[in-house]
Amino acid sequence: MLERAITGIRGTGHRVVNGVWRLGYASRFFLAVLLHSSMSFRRFHLTIKEIYFSGVLSLIIILVSGLFVGMVLGLQGYETLQKYGSESALGTLVALSLVRELGPVLAALLFASRAGSAITAEIGLMKATEQISAMEMMAVDPIARVVAPRFWAGVISMPLLAAMFSATGVFGGYLIGVVLIGVDEGQFWSQMQAAVDFRQDVMNGVIKSCVFGVAITAIALFEGYDAPPTAEGVSHATTRTVVTSALAVLALDFILTAFMFRGL
């Protein structure tokens, strides 16, 4: 009985120590990426190539999801607002929810599962097939050549994707609210414009998505780089990327929202 308890405590301690160690390791990795970033800009075509893979190829899923989320917001928002006779505020509801929260957060979650997992799998496989080792043996720093361009590509792509998500979402809400249901078009836009502030709402949304972009790509790259060089190791790392970055996005969103909109 006592032995069981001691084993349990030891296990917990081990996990905590491991977790802290990993966190430190991840921070050092992140620092190394930042320090070795000059090549990503000096040879910008390396970054452009990665923007293509993480940004351009995520575009379809982002646009389609944005449109649908906006249409659902239009339907649900109308259902609720019309009970209070304020369906003219539909534009405000759709735009504020998208620009402040749903755009950055949903785009980030989609980005994590579409691009983040791909980054982890790619880096993990490069390590498992000794491509990373081979690069080191060729006197080319894989952090500068492989990791950093992917990082900056993610950081650049994420806010653009989130903005496109929000914009298509607003269009989706417009389609449902104005075109389909027949909310007054002038009121839809004017109420929206009166309520949505550029700096307070739009810019804060953009800042949020930049932070999410940093978090997701850093997690994805670290998981890939740290993955055991086996098929199983890579597949676990990919799953961990999606789970960890989803949690990170939601937690960061809470913290950022508290700071931005409550002025904490």
Binding site: L125, M126, T129, E130, Q131, S133, A134, M135, M137
Partner: peptide, 13 residues
């Protein structure tokens, strides 16, 4: 130095 890795380790991209 040149190194030939066990399975080639060609850059697959």
């Amino acid at each position: 130095m040149g190194m030939l890795f066990q399975f080639g380790a060609l850059y697959t991209d």
